[in-house]
Design a protein around this nucleic acid. Structure first.
Lengths: 232, 232
DNA sequence: TAGATTGTTAATCGATTAACAATC
DNA sequence: TAGATTGTTAATCGATTAACAATC
């Protein structure tokens, strides 16, 4: 009881959020034929400090070699393993407005081990129309088909691109259908049970945070010396 | 010198990131005719604790009334003022792939005090084509026009929706054109000078974080009791 | 006055950082 | 061995939380 035992799944949330970035950059290095990389160089490519990178990786295990660095493919594999991206995940998208259609057509979505298994809309006029998504094409389905499609394809993740008013209702239906991970683009806070993980992406919020930055600069004394010197 | 003087622009970054959410929710309440609101209720609608909300607001000043709550329009105004969203901001979008076209057409972008002043693409075949964006329509311009358009319209924010390979180059051009706020959807870390604020939105990263959550549940003991009980 | 709710305090928690011993 | 780089430690920093005095 007094032992300071290491918690089993105790990887900090901040670390988890950075692992996909490390994974992607490592993949790129790997495809360039780079075999070994030092934390300093990898960290620079990821936009973090080397101390932070090493600290993050230390939570997964000890995969580097002192004096040498990390084996790129070995580290890539272990991060992928930790993230669970070894197994492909099915996703459904609800809300076929501009954003929903773009995400359905977005190559980057499918490029990293995710595949769309269904697209949905509440609008009866939209249902039945076909969307070309790269090589595949999808037919917009009615929301009433959601549960069946999720079950049949063992979908993992629900993406909500509806207007704010419908988002909660759709989230409830997704959870009822068995989804426990939701990516929400609607500008509302979704009330869900504890087991469900919701990540919210609010594009207008991102712009407003940048507007705050703009404003601060407007009232600054010398807006003269802006040049490509330091690295943020 | 020994006085613990309050720093002038010392609002924590975590608070800034939440202010747009408070602002939006308050706007909604305002348009519903609600005059006064308590921190408990506002916090619930925003998905934060009331303690956090009050702490955040305390950094802006003292705009509530003890025993009563906050006046909705008064608070909305002061948050807008702090965020700098009172003045409309011009934005440019570079990269007219699926995502870029969607953002250009996305109503929510224009709805909160932002207006698009130009859309650009490197591809000569794309340049000159017209995009219907709600009521307005835009013609895709060549990158060589970027600086002129930014200057003429006093644009504030650059949005990068190019492939990863071109993103750094476009960022450099944006900064050269005078932009100091960039919203980057390309999956690369942009190297920029200190004065420039870059926010990165990586849709694949968001999905991968959710995949991590899925995986944890897969290996859980009882995937039985998932119901709409608690609030995350 | 009694009830309600803010604004602030102090404690806790988690994340970041710098430095360095371990070790290839 | 000498040089390089990891993994870990301990200090610092910032953010969250709970509690409550202030005050409407």
């Amino acid at each position: 009881m007094t032992l300071p035992s290491r918690k089993p799944g105790g990887i900090p949330a901040a670390t988890i959020a950075r692992l996909p970035v490390y994974h992607r950059v490592l993949s790129t290095f790997g495809s360039q034929g780079i075999v070994t990389i030092a934390s300093e160089e990898l960290a620079a490519a990821c936009g973090v400090s080397s101390a932070k990178l090493r600290k993050d990786l230390s939570h997964l295990g000890s995969f580097g070699t002192r004096g040498v660095g990390y084996n790129v493919s070995y580290l890539t594999f272990h991060i992928a393993r930790e993230l669970g991206v070894t197994k492909p995940r099915g996703i459904v998208i609800v809300g076929m407005g501009n954003l929903g259609r773009a995400l359905a057509s977005y190559r980057a979505f499918g490029a990293r081990g995710f595949h769309i298994v269904g697209i949905f809309d509440r609008d009866h006029e939209m249902v039945g129309s076909t969307l070309l998504c790269g090589q595949e094409s999808f037919t917009v389905m009615p929301i009433s088909d959601l549960a069946a499609v999720v079950a049949k394809n063992e979908a993992s993740i629900g993406v909500i691109t509806t207007p704010a008013e419908s988002a909660q209702e759709i989230a409830d239906l997704m959870i009822e259908a068995g989804l426990v991970s939701i990516l929400n683009f609607a500008p509302v806070f979704l009330k869900v049970s504890q087991e469900v993980e919701v990540r919210k992406v609010d594009l207008a919020v991102e712009l407003q945070i940048l507007a705050f930055h703009d404003q601060k600069l407007d009232s600054e004394p010398s807006p003269q010396e802006l040049s490509q010197v330091d690295i943020a």
